[in-house]
């Protein structure tokens, strides 16, 4: 089984080499003449005001939160799907029950207005 992962392991090592090579070539070929005006942050030509760390909407966080719970649940379902042939009907229904509990969470989030972008 480790032999199956050998290819992926080598892929992890070798795949980044292509883009790294593509970044090294311009270092040799391309001109390099930075000046303060050129390296300025581009915000539509207007000079940047203040810090980049402005306060963004905290709602992005809520969606990440709901996603996290769903993600964990879905990952659990994959072994269940793989073992489908060995399961009795009862096992399948239990798995679906697992999903339905998740749906309760979704409905709750919905009713609470978490899924609303205001």
């Amino acid at each position: 089984m480790l032999n199956d992962w050998l290819f992926i392991g080598l892929m992890l090592v070798i795949a980044p080499i292509f883009p790294i090579a593509a970044l090294i070539i311009p270092r040799i070929l391309a001109p390099k003449k930075p000046n303060p005006l050129k390296t300025q942050t581009y915000e539509c030509g207007i000079e940047t005001v203040g810090d980049t760390w402005v306060q963004f909407k905290a709602q992005y966080y809520n969606f990440a939160l709901v996603f996290l719970v769903f993600d964990v649940e879905i990952v659990f379902l994959f072994p269940w799907a793989v073992a489908f042939n060995q399961l009795p009907l009862y096992g399948v229904i239990v798995g679906i029950l697992f999903i339905e509990v998740l749906v309760i969470g979704l409905i709750y989030a919905w009713r609470k207005g978490i899924l609303e972008w205001s």
Binding site: P19, A30, K32, K33, P36
Partner: peptide
């Protein structure tokens, strides 16, 4: 390949290069 590569002011250089 021949275009100049501009790193903006205040960029976190390592992470900036790692992302692409």
């Amino acid at each position: 390949l021949l275009k100049e590569d501009i790193t903006p002011q205040g960029a976190d250089k390592f992470v900036y290069n790692l992302a692409p």
